[in-house]
């Protein structure tokens, strides 16, 4: 089975310290006011002296979905699901920052990087992985709430956690089911905040127009074939060019 790089997150361990958010910004040089990952405090925010409130924190980022609606919204394949690793990748050289993929993510994991002017999101820190290090957020997490690895590999830490907790893993639910590859052990709070994958009207228009454009080209091609057919069958009777 091919790899599926994923995160298995023990939400109960998260203390909302935001070290993962800071480490990601530093490691990936993410511009001010933009973030590749987050920690969602959900429902009751604990207050001093109130014993009913229970803290629940939900760390998150791009979920490298099995059904990536962002990929469907990209006209050039600049963002794609890597069949080897299961990652949803952005090819920075091919992306021109048209923004189609951004509303297509129901988890708001994508943004247009203000410095690069291209789509941006979590990429599991490929530079760090190439150097044998885990992604920055995972590396820095003081309680090790975030565990990263190939969930299809039973030997990996993520794979072991995934298997051990298979029956009680939670995923963030969205109105568009993208089959995210981010799994929560423990109570991550509200898991139903995911929105709808919105494909921009311009991309819808392009998809709708494509068969019509092909139809016009095909019609024109048929016309040429008909003329060619007549040229060969009827021969060249262009006597009209001669005078008298």
């Amino acid at each position: 089975m091919a790899q599926q790089l994923a995160m298995v997150i023990d939400a109960a361990k998260c203390i909302d310290c935001k070290a993962c958010v800071a480490a990601c910004k530093v490691a990936n040089d993410v511009p001010e006011d933009q973030f590749r990952n987050w920690i969602k405090p959900t429902q009751d925010v604990p207050a001093p002296g109130v014993l009913t409130a229970r803290a629940k924190f939900q760390p998150g980022a791009c979920m490298h979905c099995d059904n990536p609606t962002c990929v469907d919204a990209c006209p050039t394949g600049a963002t794609y699901k890597d069949p080897e690793t299961g990652e949803v990748v952005i090819d920075d050289d091919l992306c021109i920052g048209c923004g189609n993929c951004i509303p297509a993510c129901p988890y708001h994991a994508r943004f247009r990087n203000a410095a690069k002017r291209k789509a941006d999101k979590c990429n599991y820190c490929p530079e760090r992985r190439a150097a044998g290090l885990p992604p920055a957020c995972v590396d820095t997490c003081p309680t090790k709430a975030r565990v990263f690895g190939d969930v299809n590999d039973p030997e990996s830490e993520a794979g072991r956690l995934y298997r051990k907790n298979k029956g009680r893993l939670t995923r963030v639910a969205a109105r568009t089911d993208t089959k995210p590859n981010m799994f929560y052990v423990g109570d991550p709070g509200d898991p139903t905040w995911g929105g709808e994958a919105v494909v921009p009207a311009s991309m819808v228009a392009m998809k709708e127009a494509a068969p019509l454009v092909k139809g016009v080209v095909a019609l024109s091609g048929l016309g040429v074939l008909a003329m060619l057919g007549r040229q060969f069958l009827a021969g060249n009777d262009s006597k009209e060019d001669r005078d008298g």
């Binding site: 021109i96 048209c98 392009m206």
Partner: peptide
Amino acid sequence: DRTFGAEATGWVSWSIALHF
């Protein structure tokens, strides 16, 4: 991706469709 900001992506996206 050279000069436009995020607010201009509507223009870019429609340009792709019209170009095609």
